[in-house]
Design a protein around this nucleic acid. Structure first.
Lengths: 297, 297
DNA sequence: CTGAAAGCGCTTACAG
DNA sequence: CTGAAAGCGCTTACAG
């Protein structure tokens, strides 16, 4: 051992992976990793994977299913033990190929059912409802809903939750859905939204990035006061929503819980789960300054 | 080939790497990847690596040299072809071991000399000077300099450049260096800085994150106007500095150039470079709204 | 030009 | 309990 140490010997994981079919490699497949929420999720995930003794392989994709397919092929060629997919959806044929290779799949924030995989998702429908009810409880009369048209299952659920709550309440919702999920589309939507004769006085942005853009439009371009003229609720709890310029009330994605659930499942024996498994977590509302004080808590 | 395709055959890169010593794997070793600048660099790097036919292995470290050392060991055990290091410094012994393994090393934004490596850095000293001169040219009388005490070579160079320019100009600089490189320390430094009897009227923050925090302290806590009461210059050009609430004048790190330089060097034959090579790039100043209009352009 | 053999560095099962 | 052999899936050099 001493000799090995002085010679700088290290086990060759490539060779070990070849024989034992335990490569120690886990693929993280994600798009838009430069985005605040994704970056935070990725950072936490990479660290937890390492402390669990795995080595993360990072595969950046575009937002298309096609590029996720290629990513998955790249992963299997390295006999990755598992893939954690944060964006896009592989088709069933590819999923099956992964399973045949002994590779395990976890899908985060994706509702589509895939046999043999673990799905981790948040209760987005409930969050949409909470968003609506919170706006109403704090005195809003003209609620609005803004989203990108990325059409991700989680975004769609948030929208539906908000609309269902509005229907129950008998209130009409002004809806503006456009562009990609970014600060810039938030800014543009805000610019159009607040240029109207009758302005909404409370808006749920399906994402913090959209909310930040919308708030900047409200304040810099229309000199509106948040929350007095418009209340705003976001979703994700990115670092910027805690910055004093925004101080945004938002839903907090439980990043650590998500990643721990993923890693626990990967560490458990694979034969237990032949069906697909679903773990649903809650995203609690973080009360900050973009909402008026509620009459009732 | 048709049969291979229907059976879903794929070359096993582990086996190929074992025999050909071309694993196709490149390690990215980085700390604080959830931070806006790092996330942007990482995203671009991962994508460029993939289109160059390499597969990135992500190794998240803490900011210590010790954890970079462990990361490098993990990388060598997978016979990574190269490592791109964005944080911390491996010691010479480890660098030599990497080179002996046929692994190539590129160090980004690190000034420390290491034989056999490629160093990519920015002309931070010049940027520090530009920052000072720009503040003075736009009418500042009491310049201040704020930094974290991370002590990274690039931060130190920015500080020295600013101070050297001040010395040439015969002007005293108020300096506040504290904490880690984050929004929160920017906020705290700003809070203390603007509570003084004589306030600075122009400050160079060595990082955009610090600048955002400082601006929020100035505006939310002291109702100061930027740039009329205080001008602010940052460094990095993170996405948030382009947001309307900040509209921060800052130095733009040429992320694409940095990554292309790294990948070009990795693609060139290794025997050419036995000495360490240094590539120095410029970070141009992006003029936005946190600086008064200059009398002379 | 085609085809079989050797070997990369491991781990696992088996023989001594 | 120790030690040698077989084999993981490739690539490269060599024989036919």
């Amino acid at each position: 051992m001493a000799a090995a140490d002085t010679l700088g010997y290290q086990v060759n994981h490539l060779a070990r992976g070849l024989i034992s079919s335990q490569s120690g490699l886990v693929a993280i497949i994600a798009a838009e990793i430069e985005t605040p929420f994704r970056a935070a999720l990725l950072s936490s995930l990479a660290q937890k994977l390492q402390t669990a003794g795995k080595t993360p392989v990072l595969i950046a994709t575009e937002n298309s299913d096609e590029s996720v397919r290629n990513a998955l092929r790249q992963a299997t060629s390295y006999r990755t033990e598992a893939a954690i997919i944060l964006s896009g959806m592989p088709d069933t044929a590819l999923t099956e190929m992964c399973l045949r290779h002994g590779m395990r799949l976890v899908l985060i924030n994706r509702d589509d059912a895939q046999p043999g995989t673990l799905q981790i998702r948040l209760n987005d429908h409930a969050a949409g409802k909470v968003a609506f009810n919170t706006l109403m409880r704090t005195g809003c009369k003209r609620p609005a809903l803004v989203s990108s048209n990325a059409g991700t299952p989680s975004l769609v659920s948030r929208i539906e939750g908000f609309e269902d709550a509005a229907k129950d309440h008998g209130t009409e919702v002004f809806k503006m859905i456009r562009g990609e999920t970014s600060y810039d589309t938030g800014l543009q939507i805000g610019t159009d939204l607040f240029a109207q004769d009758v302005r909404p006085d409370g808006v749920f942005c399906v994402t913090d990035l959209l909310a930040c853009g919308l708030m900047d439009a409200a304040r810099c371009r229309f000199s509106l006061n948040v929350p007095n003229d418009v209340a705003v609720i976001g979703y994700d709890n990115i670092p910027q929503s805690g910055w004093e310029s925004y101080d945004l009330t938002t839903f907090s994605q439980p990043i650590d819980e998500i990643n721990e659930a993923a890693i626990n499942w990967l560490s458990s024996p694979p034969d237990v789960a032949t069906e697909n498994e679903i773990i649903e977590l809650e995203a609690p509302l973080i009360w900050r300054g973009t909402i008026r004080k509620a009459a009732t808590t």
